[in-house]
Simulated assay, not measured.
Amino acid sequence: MDTKTTEKTATAKTDEVAEDATTEAADTTPGAGTPAAADADLLDEPDEQDDDEQDDEEAASPEATGIGAGAAAVVSAALSAVALTGTWTGKVVAERETLVGQIKTSGSGTPAQQISEIYGDAWHSTALVNGVFALLALIVAALVLTLPRRPAWVRAVAVAGAVLGGLGLLLSVGTYFDLFLSLPTAGS
């Protein structure tokens, strides 16, 4: 342990001697000993350190943006898939509409009215809920695609979310307005 301490002390003394020699050389060099030249030397070092710190901050920010954008892109794709396959919420809303239709038409409704109230309203409410999920997927995907400096995989997932969300929205609108299939009609 004493040898290490002695080596450290010797190194420190050598550094002090080198600093003294540098200071003396600066005093004898024309123009180098002026306070302005010394200040310029001091100012150069912090600028280099500031540049390094800025580079570190810039290097960290795309990662943070990439993580958030990646998460949002995955959420967009998941919302799109949910819009296409249906949700538990949509099923609950549809069952509620079915029950309300049964209560409204119990015993007194015509067959056409029963079909509309019991099945049509449930069908349309499911399409509405799925359309809301598809619209949310499109909004999130659009936000991700407008972010600057995003990785390629984030862009790809966001585009997939936007395409699936658009498809889900198209299907929901078509189902809501009975464009693909119409409600059955009662025989007279």
Rank of each mutant, 00 (worst) to 15 (best):
Thr85Ser: 15
Lys8Met: 14
Thr85Lys: 10
Asp52Lys: 14
Leu136Thr: 00
Phe180Ala: 05
Val163His: 04
Asp2Ala: 14
Leu42Asn: 11
Gln102Val: 07
Gln113Thr: 11
Gly109Asp: 09
Glu63Gln: 13
Gly161Val: 05
Leu183Phe: 06
Ser61Ile: 09
Leu145Ser: 07
Val75Ile: 13
Gly187Gln: 10
Pro111Asp: 13
Gln113Lys: 13
Ile139Glu: 00
Val144Cys: 05
Arg96Met: 14
Trp153His: 15
Glu57Leu: 15
Gly86Leu: 04
Leu147Glu: 08
Trp88Gly: 15
Asp121Leu: 10
Ser125Thr: 05
Gln54Thr: 08
Gly66Ile: 06
Gly90Ile: 01
Ala72Lys: 00
Phe133Ile: 04
Ser80Trp: 01
Leu138Gly: 11
Val82Pro: 03
Gly165His: 01
Lys91Thr: 14
Ala186Phe: 06
Phe133Pro: 00
Asn130Arg: 09
Trp153Glu: 15
Gly174Arg: 10
Asp51Gly: 03
Asp20Gln: 15
Ala12Phe: 09
Leu164His: 04
Val163Tyr: 09
Val154Tyr: 04
Ala40Pro: 02
Val92Phe: 09
Ile67Asp: 10
Ser116Trp: 01
Pro46Tyr: 03
Ser106Asn: 13
Gly31Met: 07
Ala40Gly: 10
Gly101Val: 07
Gln102Met: 14
Tyr119Trp: 08
Asp50Lys: 11
Ala137Asp: 00
Ala158Phe: 07
Ala21Leu: 14
Leu138Gln: 00
Met1Glu: 08
Val159Leu: 14
Ser172Ala: 15
Asp47Lys: 11
Thr146Gly: 07
Thr5Trp: 02
Leu170Lys: 08
Tyr176Ala: 15
Glu95Ile: 04
Ala73Ile: 01
Gln54Phe: 06
Ala40Val: 03
Glu16Cys: 04
Gln113Glu: 15
Phe177Leu: 15
Ala78Asp: 03
Ile118Glu: 09
Gly187Ile: 02
Leu128Asp: 10
Asn130Glu: 11
Gly86Pro: 02
Ser61Lys: 09
Lys91Phe: 12
Leu43Pro: 02
Val163Trp: 02
Ala73Cys: 07
Gly131Tyr: 09
Ser108Leu: 07
Val140Gly: 00
Thr98Gln: 12
Thr29Val: 02
Ala32Trp: 08
Val129Leu: 04
Ala10Phe: 12
